[in-house]
Computed example of a mutant assay.
Amino acid sequence: MKNFRIMASWRACVKGDGQSPAPSARCRKKSSGCNKEIFAGGKGRALDNIFVERLWRTVKYERVYLNPADSGTQLKVSLKEYFHWCNGHRPHSSLNDRTPDAVYFDYFKEQAA
Rank of each mutant, 00 (worst) to 15 (best):
S94R: 11
H89M: 13
C13A: 13
M7E: 10
F51Y: 10
P23K: 02
I6E: 00
K2S: 12
G88W: 04
A102E: 12
P21Y: 07
A12T: 01
C86H: 12
K109T: 04
R63S: 10
C34G: 02
A69R: 01
S20N: 10
K15F: 03
K29W: 07
Y82Q: 04
D17R: 10
W85T: 01
S31P: 01
T99C: 07
P91M: 01
L95I: 00
V14H: 02
R90T: 00
F105G: 07
S24K: 10
N87F: 02
N96F: 08
N3T: 07
V59C: 08
R28L: 03
K76V: 03
E62G: 01
P23F: 01
G72A: 05
V14K: 11
E53M: 11
D17M: 07
R26F: 15
F105W: 11
V103N: 02
Y107V: 00
R98L: 12
G42E: 06
A46H: 14
D70Y: 07
A112V: 15
V64Y: 00
Q111D: 06
S32M: 13
M1D: 07
E37P: 07
F108T: 06
F39R: 06
K80G: 08
S31R: 05
R5N: 11
F108L: 08
K76N: 04
A113K: 15
I38N: 05
D101H: 08
G88K: 09
R28S: 05
G44Q: 05
G16K: 03
Y107S: 09
N87Y: 05
S20V: 04
L95V: 03
D48V: 15
E62W: 01
R63T: 03
G16S: 09
T73P: 05
A113F: 13
A25L: 14
K2W: 04
N49M: 14
W10R: 14
T99F: 03
F105M: 14
W85V: 00
Y61Q: 13
T58P: 05
Y61P: 02
T73L: 15
A22D: 08
Q19A: 12
